[in-house]
């Protein structure tokens, strides 16, 4: 495990991206062969949102057209394999970061950009991404990676659209990374 020095964000500290990609692909393959379903992340946070809303307004969630489907059968909204997978992703990331001494609390941003506006952008971007991943039935994990590997038409279209949307909006938010 390489010990990182302050300000060292170069790729040398990280694993070879191509080897990481192969390992990620094998993890995805294992998910398909063991669970019978691909990887997923956005369902975890979405169910957390549904769970909080249920605590505040249970009747409203039960009768709502989308979240309502998740409470049928009487099980907890959080009893879902992708919620457990999300917890696993957090713990796996934590394990790797601890081993690599990469836990450094802070708000990642360009030196010329404030922490508060950066947090607002992250929150706003999260709001859009959270909404979009419900609309598309998944995010980069569930759709682009998992659906793409299964050659699903919709997932491949989703993957292309993510890059189109990202590149189209990149110029407007470039300043947050200016040093």
């Amino acid at each position: 495990m390489s010990q990182l020095t302050e300000g060292d964000r170069g790729p040398a500290a990280y694993a070879n991206p191509y080897l990481s990609g192969v390992l990620l692909g094998l993890t995805l393959l294992a998910s398909y062969l063991i669970l019978g379903a691909g990887l997923g992340a956005s369902a975890g946070t979405a169910r957390l949102g549904a769970f909080v809303e249920q605590c505040l307004a249970p009747a409203h969630v039960a009768e709502s057209a989308y979240f309502g489907r998740w409470v049928e059968g009487g099980r907890s909204i959080l009893y879902y394999y992708l919620v457990f997978m999300f917890v696993g992703v957090f713990l796996g990331g934590l394990l790797s970061a601890v081993l690599a001494s990469r836990i450094r609390p802070g708000v990642e941003r360009g030196r010329a950009f404030g922490a508060a506006p950066r947090l607002l952008l992250a929150l706003g971007g999260g709001l859009i991404a959270g909404f979009a991943s419900r609309l598309a039935n998944g995010c980069t994990s569930g759709q682009a990676l998992s659906g793409g590997a299964m050659l699903l038409n919709g997932s491949l279209v989703f993957m292309a659209c993510v890059f189109v949307g990202g590149y189209a909006a990149a110029w407007f938010v470039r300043r947050q990374w200016h040093d």
Binding site: T45, G126, C139, F158, A168
Partner: peptide, 16 residues
């Protein structure tokens, strides 16, 4: 969803 997700991705720098 894909277009919006890409916008959210680049604004925040994250995906779930």
């Amino acid at each position: 969803g894909g277009l919006l997700f890409g916008i959210g991705f680049v604004i925040s720098g994250w995906c779930p």
